[in-house]
Amino acid sequence: MSATTSTTGAGAPGPDAPAGQTQSIWVLSWLHLKYQFLETVRIPIAVLGNVLFPSLSMFFFVVPQESVAGNPLYATVAVAGLGLFAVCSASLFTYGLGVAEDRQLPFYPFLRSLPAGPGPQMVARVLNGGIFSLFGLLPLILIGWLFTAATLTAGQLLAGVGTILAVSVPFVLLGMAIGYKLSAKAALPVVQVILFPLAFAGGLFLPPQMFPAWLDAISKATPTRAGRDLLVQATTGLDAYALALPVLAGWTLLFAVLAVLSYRSDEGRRFR
């Protein structure tokens, strides 16, 4: 990737120099992605936790149940649901808690004074989250393939991974909205209070076919249910309900606005 902007900072520009141009958002996003990736990967336990959690859930909750593990459709849907839960939880925790913790580090105000707006940092966070979600999905897919009857064509696998990453975007944004607004201590319980009801109502633990009609109606308005159904559609061909995509897009937009508002209102710590 090369710098696409043209201002040269060399020499001594006249006193009436106009405001400079920052590096292009893609150059800066790439820069922040490298930085965040290195920071994440240098603390191996964080990576390991992300990889282990979905795999262990598979072994505890899906593989032992012959009625689920032995049925290609159910098994695939179960893998999809757990995969989505893993990605949602990773996104909300990494961003909600991670951002809140970062904000308490003294390097953070320095970052905010570099010539870059909030965009590159957010883009990098989303992409970095995506990369580590993929690390978490890999063993999950392997287990599903080796120990259950779940089947996927190469095309479905690709569509599934693509969908799950796209579906993770609103959760990453929600995490950021929480992380930029709250302290680390407050962010933790808030994330938990949001994650588990959303995961349950979205049918990530129990298939929504078991829900009574009223719960099903609520469920269909949640981003988790919309994401789950889109993911199931991508991996099994079962059609999602018609409003799934608009519902997900609406939540994504709302969370994006909240994330930007939180970032703007964040003025760092009171004293440093």
Binding site: T22, L105, P115
Partner: peptide, 21 residues
């Protein structure tokens, strides 16, 4: 405005360097 900060340099606090980098 981020653009106006292209002419600015400043020090992070000593304790604030990202330790693992």
């Amino acid at each position: 405005d981020a653009r106006s900060r292209t002419v600015l340099g400043l020090t992070p606090q000593e304790t604030g360097l990202p330790a693992t980098l």
